[in-house]
Design a binder for these strands. Sequence first.
RNA 1: GACUUCGUAGCUCAACUGGAUAGAGUAUUGGCCUCCGAAGCCAAAGGUUGCGGGUUCGACUCCCGCCGAGGUCACCA
Length: 593
Amino acid sequence: MISAEKILFTVVQKALQELYTLKSDNITFQKTRKEFEGDLTLVTFPFIKETKKSPEQVGQAIGEYLKQNEKQVSDFNVVKGFLNITLSNEFWLNYFNSIKDSESIGFKVPESSGRTVMLEYASPNTNKPLHLGHIRNLLLGYSVSNILKANGHKVIKVSIVNDRGIHICKSMLAWKKWGNGETPQSSGMKGDHLVGKYYVIFDKEYKKEVEELVGAGKKKEDAEKISLLMMECQDMLLKWEAGDKATVDLWKMMNSWVYEGFAVTYKTVGVDFDKTYYESNTYLLGKELIKEGLEKNVFYKKENGSVAIDLSAEGLDEKIVLRSDGTSVYITQDIGTAIERFKEFPDLKQMIYTVGNEQDYHFKVLFKILEKLGYSWAKECYHLSYGMVELPEGKMKSREGTVVDADDLLKEMFDTAEATTKELGKVDEFSETELKDLYYLIGSGALKYFMLKVDPKKKMLFDPKESIDFNGHTGPFIQYTHARIKSVLRKADFDYTKSIEAASFEPAEKEILRWIYDFESVIEESGKSLSPSLVANYVYELTKSYNRFYHELPIMKEENKEVKMLRLQLSKACGQTISNAMNLLGIKVPEKM
RNA sequence: GACUUCGUAGCUCAACUGGAUAGAGUAUUGGCCUCCGAAGCCAAAGGUUGCGGGUUCGACUCCCGCCGAGGUCACCA
């Protein structure tokens, strides 16, 4: 079905042409505010300069033109400079009949756009378990990939694991010194938590040593340099890079513990990847390219032998891309992996990095370097930058133990879901496994919705003392409404699928239909802005409109058979839309709860 | 210090990218289950959009200056 906006666009264009001989492409419609009569609103102010008429006159004239020349327009009114357009009942009925039995309301045909997008998210370090900040990253990345798919793109989800470097050696060294051979099996700890424990131990011991040195009269900076522990650690890194067997074996073993732990958390959060990259495999990639860049004069060698690029003309600073000892820095690997990925997937059109906004500058530099190296796809690289999750006392700091652990938080959510469900006692007939699934569904739904409803760009606050709500503007509220719809539909044990040919919509019914109609454009918009929050806030509004309808009008109790069928069909379509929208957020929706 | 992001009801967030009287939830107060699911619905109260200028038909949104908070400015990752 052609959208009303498209139809109206051409008619309004014609109206302007015929009435004022005015050519304009700048015609946009907005949803009419609910305190006014109408479906779509056209703002007439942009046209008053050329027409030299008042906004009211222009609105009135265009309105009349529309009403006479476009049968889908049944009425209009003008308030100040706003032309409110009412679409015909026939239009809405046609629309309703076209979607009422569809399961893919709002979605484009999969891979119809032919655009292949790679989306990187997760990118954890292997020295500590995942925390709340990672959860935001995971949910965002996963949801954005769903939204892009719903827009017809092909998406490759990838993760890059930061599995090498000095920070990994810290855990390894501490385990070697004080671990007494402890394993996930022997301790009963999840692998990533076990490794994280030794990372913390290292830090504690290191601090202790530095303090002792300072106590003995050393300056802090000097103490940090001559710390035996740190020197041992650096030695370990050298051994690792040289391929020393014992070191590499230890590294492999501890990493495998971490991966097992991560796999559990990913599964619990409900995210997955098409491919995982490891920095231990890719960290040398960039080096070859440095040579190339030197030949092209994009980079230059400094006196001490290091290689750098000057970006001051772009308003950025000088950036080192190769150390004087010839080893690569962080950004060197990123240059290498980016190039590698575009080689690996020749039909790749866009590359999205889901990384926190503390790395805004890093990505600016990275993309600029890629551009200077002459890669045409550099401008298609995009940093999906999101704000930090903050606690009431400020930023989370792993060293100070103020992090909210991902596994703990998830567990807590499931427990709360269990307690609330038991208290309400509506699913007594559920089996043990059904109940467990339900707690999982509600608990993770609450957490996911909580995090995805806020604009990714903005930082958000999480207060562990006030647990995440299950009432109001929340995931469970939406899940509940879906269960309620399913309950109504279960009661309708007759065939109500016949198309309704003649009916008019009550305001409450129309409101729902109006929201369902908007779903498609919301998906488009959130795909463009890579923002799941648009979908989250949208589905909340849709859900509210259903609850209002539900309280206002009878469904199964309605006497008129046609009206009853219409309301059942509307309920079904609404339930489907809720389910589709929540799916984009990675949230499942129950039949009963 | 330079650059950068942000500042909206007590609290957590919206506001269709410059549009109508700035909206929700929560907390507070009141009403609605012998009637399709009360994790719900209805209502009251809550605001000088940090402050001061400017741009225009119109500003939470754009520009300038203050104030306040975060982030980044490594041959760390």
